[in-house]
Design a protein around this nucleic acid. Structure first.
Lengths: 142, 142
DNA sequence: TATCAAGAGATAATAATTATCTATTTTCTA
DNA sequence: TAGAAAATAGATAATTATTATCTCTTGATA
């Protein structure tokens, strides 16, 4: 995929930093925080600052290119997939996974289901499940 | 309802501050932040500190008496109803409402629906809808 | 009612996030 | 394709929600 093209299609300027940040986020399933992205990018992009990552992700989120997650940790995480989809959050280690896509499809109609029952004009939704991830579950069972 | 009894049933000590904080939260549908609770309580409880409200709500949440909400604002809000239920968040003014209970009932089975499709041990979930509340919607249509 | 753990309040510390300011770089146009 | 206008990057400093610490007081229980 052509990252520059994706950025332009969202009305965003193209810079080497933005390309690097977007590709780092799109290339992982880990829903990283700003700090985590910074650590990952620093080896190949020594000049890049935390501040730039903050501002860039904010611009991406406003443009609808990425999604900002609120997982009850003391910082936010980001997801290169901006479509509403379901996240699993481990309350032990903080890990965040996407719900298996087939299971998520069954929840796709949620917005339509309730849009008739509210006075709000809906534009988005977010569903989080909290629990113990496989590896933390195992540790607890010992 | 007897607030002292509710607190004791959740393994919490009873103090005048805790009673005041719980009743202030339970007596509103506005899902207030710590700061908002503080402003509301200060007139009748001049001694009460922000710190105490923070610590108290944290204790309440750990005991399963209240729910902490993450609405994408820069602070958290609290809900005296700890059961998983759906929240509507206005992306213009920040207002938070409960979804009409009848509509919410239709979503009650969500957890069971997906618990077979994940390796996580689920203990809780949260569903947020984002959009424009009735009064903000009206302003936008002008 | 005495004891003891836990809570309240004051103060200071943390840490994620944002604001500001200057130099640089894209993008758009002539 | 060069040049101007506008937005970006990066460095530094500032904000602010939230938590830690410490001492005194109070609630719960025997």
């Amino acid at each position: 995929m052509d990252t520059a093209k994706i950025l332009r299609e969202h009305g965003l300027r193209v810079t080497p930093q933005r390309i690097a940040i977007y590709e780092a986020l799109a290339g992982t399933k880990e829903h990283p925080s700003v700090e985590a992205l910074y650590d990952r990018l620093r080896p190949r992009h020594p000049g890049l600052s935390l501040n730039t990552i903050y501002k860039t992700l904010q611009a991406f989120a406003s443009a609808g290119l990425v999604r900002k997650l609120a997982t009850h940790e003391d910082m936010h995480r980001y997801d290169a997939n901006p479509e509403p989809h379901t996240h699993m959050v481990c309350i032990e280690c903080g890990r965040v996974d996407d719900l298996d896509s087939k299971a998520d499809e069954r929840l796709a109609g949620i917005k339509d289901l309730i849009s008739n029952d509210t006075d709000y004009d809906l534009v988005d939704h977010a569903l989080y499940f909290y629990g113990y991830c496989p590896s933390c579950r195992e540790k607890r069972n010992k």
